[in-house]
Design a protein around this nucleic acid. Structure first.
Lengths: 172, 172
DNA sequence: AATAGGTCATTCAAGCTTCAACTATTTTCG
DNA sequence: CGAAAATAGTTGAAGCTTGAATGACCTATT
């Protein structure tokens, strides 16, 4: 693609976009392979374990979990089934809403997460965080924060009580 | 996720990492849905069409194409089969290396790309480029260029020169 | 010229993701 | 109230991705 016609991307923007998409294409597979080899977990498994571990009683409503991990309910449902079969999580019916259910972290799931976390963090450092300067990281954080906010289904940012204790800005 | 024992992530890094992964999780599906609805193309289809369109004779060796689009040969092979069936590309045997093959952009593929490009560019703008300030874009380009370079098997840098000049992050 | 070892590309099977359809429950509101 | 609409979550089938295995060909070394 070359011609500059209506609302095209400038050369600089084009270049930035290609770097971003290259990272999007390469980073998750790399992290996943390392997680997989070392602990038999997928990246999505890991993200779910992390979410659960950070919530009171290590349980989260499925809808909230789907939103927190940026995936469809359908996918989460399949994912849950797999992780349930692997013994990492369990489902629990919601007493106050009979449609609903909680995902609960099992003891096993907690242990696996504890074991996997250091390796995974090391991967993230090696391939991402240690490659950027502190100043770059700060700008990237701000820029991607804005992008992510705009991508998120805007509705319920402050509503749902079962999510989010206040405090820690890093802790979603 | 609590103890800080080995090499953990700082709160700031943690926060940056979560923004990045949120974008990685949300951006491609969003762009893909818009491309799909408007032109029946997947993001990977589009990336391949773009690559081909930019090469002499609109053809590229499959290995090179796989590398340029950051995917495995296996995946590309399946992808090619699908796109061939859709009439977007064709395969051509390499005359000088009988193991090899070229992917060639068809007339149809070119037309589809021409039709899809404006919409897709608009999506990229809307969800990504227009959300970042020029200064942010520059820093993100440089940072992700470094990350991508380190993730790539061996190859050369693809950071365009304009991104390499340092930037004052306070001006962001 | 022979052979060992590399590269190019495809195939298969298993697993994962997507989308639409579906059940069951709760909420809205005329 | 009671019908319509919205929400929570699941399911199934089709399609896509992955990783290992394979076949075919090239290249370096001897």
């Amino acid at each position: 693609m070359t011609e500059a016609e209506p609302r095209w991307l400038s050369d600089e923007d084009q270049c930035v976009w290609r770097q971003i998409i290259a990272v999007i294409n390469m980073l998750p597979p790399r992290l996943e392979r390392e997680l997989q080899r070392a602990h038999g977990l997928s990246l999505h498994d890991y993200q779910i374990l992390v979410q659960l571990s950070e919530h009171p009683d290590r349980e989260v409503r499925l809808s909230d979990l789907a939103e927190a991990t940026q995936q469809s309910k359908s996918r989460l449902s399949h994912q849950m089934t797999r992780m349930e079969n692997a013994g990492l999580v369990a489902r629990r019916n919601c007493p106050t809403d009979r449609r609903g259910a909680y995902a609960v972290l099992t003891e096993e799931g907690w242990r696996v997460l504890e074991a996997a976390a250091p390796t995974h963090v090391e991967s993230v450092r090696e391939h991402l965080m240690d490659v950027m300067t502190p100043a770059q990281k700060q700008v990237v954080g701000a820029a991607f924060g804005a992008v992510a906010d705009k991508l998120r289904p805007a509705a319920r940012s402050t509503v749902c009580p079962s999510l989010k204790q206040p405090v820690d800005p890093s802790g979603v």
